[in-house]
Nucleic acid binder design. Structure first.
Lengths: 141, 141
DNA sequence: GTAATTGCAAATACTTTGCCACGTA
DNA sequence: TACGTGGCAAAGTATTTGCAATTAC
């Protein structure tokens, strides 16, 4: 099994979470995905569909978010999107408003400077940001 | 009545929308608000609560969004947020993850350069972005 | 054995649609 | 008059909770 998955689970176990098959598969699925996924997508994905109930995936995501292992994103859909939170990694996204495709943006994020300013000037704690670009992709146009 | 509201309604009338009291009050409310608002907030706001049904507000917002007069935002809540789209104006937001307060950020948006690059390199049309900062505000911390 | 985890069912929250009456132009 | 608009009720979609059974450690 993927050593990064092992590492994440190890860290979670210290917080009292138990190592279950569903947890393992969920983290693996999120890690393999190159974009955020919805609860419905996760629950019906190859690794999880026959593994456990949708509600279980929901509760796992909830716990993982509480422990800072995943982040819940907006991304403009009615359903919430989830992504693994890996220290040092950050993604902004490019989303097609027509077909809904989501791509991570390669370019370095231009927001860190402003984020630092806001942190200083406003005194907000645990600051992070979410940046998305919306438009109609070439295929749809 | 506010001349900007008049102007917006004029422009909408050219697209076939009719001037109704509810439309007027909705646009005025959105214009007066310094932050995006949810459907529920709008429907129960001073100007609209006794004016019309929630469903009517919903449909108005829908029409306005279709005609590019309002934009629907994510902002991480379960409910969608709406904001008037005024040419030349753009806001990024600072949101408290604890109390949910939303503030527009004064500083100039640092993303336009990247947005231009993406427009060129990817060929996406009608590109725009949404940028939010999340953190715990001083009051909540 | 104990506490975390799970499944299933049901409750909630928010959004969206249908249908017919009404108002604007 | 004609067609956009409004209200009310109901359906749809996504999320969240309750509780008893199960599993990890």
């Amino acid at each position: 099994m993927n050593p990064i998955v092992q590492e994440i689970i190890q860290s979670l176990r210290k917080s009292g979470l138990r190592r279950t098959k569903a947890l393992e598969e969920l983290i693996t699925t999120l890690l393999e995905s190159k974009r955020p996924m919805t609860l419905a997508e996760l629950a019906t994905s190859a690794r999880l569909a026959d593994q456990c109930d949708k509600v279980t995936v929901f509760r796992l995501l909830q716990r993982l978010a509480e422990h800072g292992a995943v982040r819940r994103l907006g991304l403009h859909e009615r359903a919430a999107y989830f992504t693994l939170l890996i220290p040092g990694k950050h993604s902004d996204y490019l989303i097609c408003t027509s077909c809904g495709s989501i791509k991570a943006i390669e370019a370095p994020c231009p927001v860190h400077q402003l984020e630092a300013e806001i942190r200083e000037k406003t005194g907000y704690r645990n600051l992070y940001h979410e940046l998305e670009f919306f438009g109609v992709c070439p295929k749809c146009a």
